[in-house]
Design a protein around this nucleic acid. Structure first.
Length: 355
DNA sequence: TTCGCTGCTGAGTAGTGGCT
DNA sequence: AGCCACTACTCAGCAGCGAA
């Protein structure tokens, strides 16, 4: 499809090229990632139509990228830094890629003698060799600017995420090394592969897109046609702190500049970032305020069944500001495990569409 | 409430065997 | 040999878990 084809409530939009493009988006293992749901979301967005779109909690970036592929003028926002960098590289960036020479330089000898990562996370994450590479790569990245810098950081973040066992930085050491490829590959080789993936994701949509880093309530009130919301959810019992799991990626995206490591923690994580969406006591009010803020836009909200507040409450909150509230259930395919005790579980994801 | 940790599900794919 | 349907097994991913 051509950029802008999403006009006119999406009639005549050919989703196949969009779905194909989105499927190739570099995948980050991330809580609540919408990678698998992207094709469904694309169909919904195309049906809604419009010119401008906001992804207020962009996370892995795959939904903002989907909106871009549909021809929207996209604003991606997240309160963490590394999602902002990924969106800058893949959504805001329309043309720049890393050249083979630039990738070689980043993978080559260091430009200075920095060793913050090697020293700080000794014995916690990755091999000495891998952490030396992270310092060395950053010595070159610090000489890059704009989209190229964002691309290089994105590739470095994804390399680290892929190589970390279980994909979460709440666990230290190499205890779970089962010999799989992602763990065997050096971070340098990972970086080369991830950089190629991010390069391949770059395309020109012909619509100006941007990436912001900040609180959703601090966003300037602009009349977006479409606002997509995938907020962190407040589990009834468990905590869902993103920083706890992804602190290393957040630090790596900034070379820990302006970040405060909690030295007393075993994992050397960063301080927890408060968000009202994560607490059962404040989540409903945070949603209410968010809906109020975007009451002039079509709101699309992703929701999964375990969250607080429940679906009824969310629908009621939406009806306070929107006249037409629709709830859709996206059924995933069944899959058939061959294990003796593989239970078949129906997984469904709710999608609220409020016009 | 905050801490670090891992068992289990199911998607992916190589393997198997019957058939043309 | 080539194709297809189905099986068996590996391994990536999980808005979660128990302990203090």
């Amino acid at each position: 499809m051509t950029a802008g084809a999403v006009h006119g409530a999406g009639h005549g939009v050919d989703l196949l090229p969009v779905v194909a493009r989105v499927a190739a988006f570099p995948r980050l293992r991330y809580m609540g990632s919408k990678h698998r749901l992207a094709p469904h979301l694309a169909a919904v967005f195309a049906e809604i139509g419009g010119r401008t779109a906001l992804d207020a909690f962009s996370g892995s970036g795959v939904v903002a990228y989907t909106l871009k592929a549909l021809g929207y003028q996209v604003t991606a926002n997240d309160f963490l830094c590394f999602p902002g960098v990924i969106a800058r590289a893949t959504v805001a960036n329309q043309s720049e890629t890393l050249t083979p020479e630039e990738i070689d330089r980043i993978c080559g000898p260091p430009a200075d003698d920095r060793d913050f990562i090697r020293r700080t996370f000794d014995g916690l994450y990755f091999t000495d060799h891998d952490r030396e590479f992270l310092d060395s790569a950053w010595s070159h990245i610090d000489r890059l600017h704009g989209a190229k810098r964002a691309l290089a950081i994105s590739a470095l973040v994804l390399a680290a995420a892929r190589k970390q066992p279980r994909g979460v930085f709440t666990v230290t050491g190499a205890r779970y090394d089962d010999g799989r490829r992602d763990l065997r590959l050096s971070l340098r080789d990972h970086f080369r592969e991830r950089a190629a993936e991010y390069n391949a994701a770059v395309f020109d949509s012909g619509r100006r897109c941007r990436s912001l880093t900040g609180d959703v309530f601090d966003l300037a009130a602009e009349p977006y046609d479409l606002v997509y919301l995938d907020p962190p959810y407040a589990p009834p019992r468990d905590d869902n702190c993103y920083i706890k799991r992804y602190h290393f990626l957040e630090g790596l995206a900034t070379y820990w500049r302006g970040q405060k490591i909690m030295e007393g923690t075993r994992t050397k994580k960063l301080e927890k970032r408060y968000t009202p969406f994560s607490y059962p006591r404040t989540a409903a009010d945070a949603l209410r305020r968010t809906f109020e803020k975007f009451r002039d836009s079509t709101i699309v909200l992703s929701y999964s069944s375990n969250a607080v507040p429940d679906a009824e409450t969310i629908a009621a909150l939406l009806r306070q500001v929107k006249s037409d509230v629709e709830v859709r259930t996206i059924d995933h395919r069944y899959s058939f495990g061959t294990h003796a005790n593989a239970a078949r579980r129906k997984v469904c994801e709710y999608l609220f569409i409020a016009r």
